[in-house]
């Protein structure tokens, strides 16, 4: 334990408690094969939501994400749903999205490359809130009922921040 513990201790102690820098960029295909990049959402508040078809709490969280998408979309907010099903079950993704009548963009991370960038442990569901400056503002791991209140508060806080102020330490 000691070598790893020492390394993480040094790293985490060295971390300044200031605003984060830009989130890593990525490009994925959506359900219709179109290429979608995080950079296309520059200047918006974005919630990256990682999920899979077999993840029960993910399905319970989805209606709340849809409400955020509808309610805060006009203010410059978007949900980017990132599905982590691999190739074997990916055919079930679009039917589930259609049946739940979800309208936010759904991207396919079939090779687990993007989930590896943000959430290497692949805990599901897992959400990353990115502010207008493109910085990671908050991370949410797992979902239990009531967690959507925390997410909504964080979304509201990010939306009221002006784009320039968001990067000020």
């Amino acid at each position: 334990m000691r070598p790893l513990a020492l390394l993480s201790l040094l790293l985490l102690l060295a971390a300044p408690a200031s605003a984060a820098d830009k989130a890593p960029g990525f490009t994925l295909r959506d359900l219709d094969g179109r290429s979608v990049s995080l950079s296309q959402y520059s200047g918006q508040v974005v919630l990256l939501s990682f999920w899979a078809t077999w993840c029960t709490p993910c399905q319970a969280e989805m209606p709340h994400l849809q409400r955020f998408h509808d309610q805060y979309g006009p203010q410059g907010f978007s949900v980017l749903s990132i599905n982590t099903d691999d190739a074997r079950s990916v055919s079930q993704v679009k039917p589930i999205i259609k049946a739940r009548q979800l309208t936010f963009p759904v991207l396919l991370d079939r090779e687990t490359t993007v989930v590896g960038l943000f959430n290497p442990a692949k805990t599901l569901p897992f959400s990353v809130l990115i502010d207008r400056q493109g910085a990671i503002a908050k991370v949410f791991s797992g979902y239990t009922p009531g967690d959507e209140v925390l997410v909504e508060q964080a979304v509201q806080a990010s939306l009221v921040q002006p784009a320039q102020a968001a990067s000020t330490p």
């Binding site: 513990a5 993480s8 201790l9 790293l11 985490l12 102690l13 971390a15 300044p16 408690a17 200031s18 605003a19 984060a20 820098d21 830009k22 989130a23 890593p24 960038l117 943000f118 990353v128 809130l129 910085a135 990671i136 503002a137 908050k138 991370v139």
Partner: peptide, 29 residues
Amino acid sequence: SLLLSVLANPSAGAIPVGGDGPLAGTVVQ
């Protein structure tokens, strides 16, 4: 180390490397 990290950085999901050196602007997760 975990507790320290939580206390030092309770909300951000990434750690930026500050300063003007070659690593400035690097995001460590």
